[in-house]
Design a protein around this nucleic acid. Structure first.
Lengths: 175, 175
DNA sequence: GTCTATAGAATGATAGAC
DNA sequence: GTCTATCATTCTATAGAC
């Protein structure tokens, strides 16, 4: 869907609220009316855009749930999440922090359930405060680091490698 | 300034772009025109709001620069940054990730210089990729964790204590 | 599926009275 | 400093022709 791709690019740059349907239409070279023919509302575009991005996460999450939960499967999950975050570098902070998307993730039930699955996969049976904080920190560290000005000069491969090393270290998963 | 306080509260909830001057005026019970009498543009309000928040960071940064740079002064800085982040829990992700504010931090010279000072205080002479990534991760982990749904139930004291422990651990500053 | 045209509301900003 | 009133623009969304 060209519309969703355009929306994602514009959301990442300007945020959801500052992205108008006119901007999306211009981006792909059609009129607003053409966009409205495929999506009844702007909100529907936002939902579709979030779905597209979460779908990528879902694949690695399925795999993680299928495997038995041990150090190596957790490390695999972490590595794949990092791969995705680095690939989607420009999108990440929008998906994690844009107020419109945050509200959507909290209200839309399918999204809520998905986030629960993700957290459960990373936490396992450890639901104590420290474990939850560790996961919250790791998730934020990955999401924030990939767009941080301090490491804007690092190429994707370098960033990926170092992030995997430092996160497995922090979670105590080193071999 | 009541306007700035209102703006900050609304920015934190809706983001800068989704916050109109009408909303700010309503919040403090005056008209838009009254707001425009004190701030020529919406941008000026955003600048003032960011200045107010950065001013809090500036105090602890001044202290860090005055002290000689060693483990204990770095730990002090980290602890105070965490204190501020926990106190300003609702504001943090807006200040770090709102597209309008990000653009402002990058374009406004005083803000740029301030961020440089902050990074320098945390990095010291270590400008290698791993050190920069560690700082980027720590900054993101702190900023993200304080608003993360996984730890929304933790009270401020608990969150503060655990964050200090885990971040000093990650930076290798434990005694 | 795409277009033109437009409705109806909200936006940032200004003029001028009190 | 605050108000009413207004302007020009932009926004989401819809109607209807091709």
């Amino acid at each position: 869907m060209r519309i969703v791709a355009a929306a994602l690019a514009l959301f990442a740059e300007h945020g959801v609220s500052a992205t108008s349907l006119q901007m999306i239409a211009d981006y792909i070279g059609v009129t607003k009316a053409a966009v409205y023919h495929q999506f009844k509302t702007k909100e529907a575009i936002v939902v579709a855009a979030v779905e597209v991005e979460l779908a990528k996460l879902e694949e690695v999450l399925d795999a993680a749930e299928a495997a038995e939960r041990d150090k190596s499967s957790l490390e695999t999950l972490l590595t794949q999440v990092i791969d995705l975050a680095v690939e989607q570098r420009r999108m990440v902070s929008t998906l994690l922090y844009d107020p419109v998307i945050v509200r959507l993730l909290g209200e839309h039930e399918p999204f809520q359930q998905f986030m629960d699955r993700l957290y459960r996969a990373m936490l396992g049976k450890n639901r104590d405060a420290e474990s939850r904080l560790r996961v919250a920190m790791i998730a934020s560290a990955i999401g924030g680091a990939v767009t941080h000005p301090l490491v804007a000069d690092l190429d994707a491969t370098m960033l990926r490698t170092e992030l995997v090393r430092l996160t497995t270290d922090f979670l105590g998963l080193e071999d």
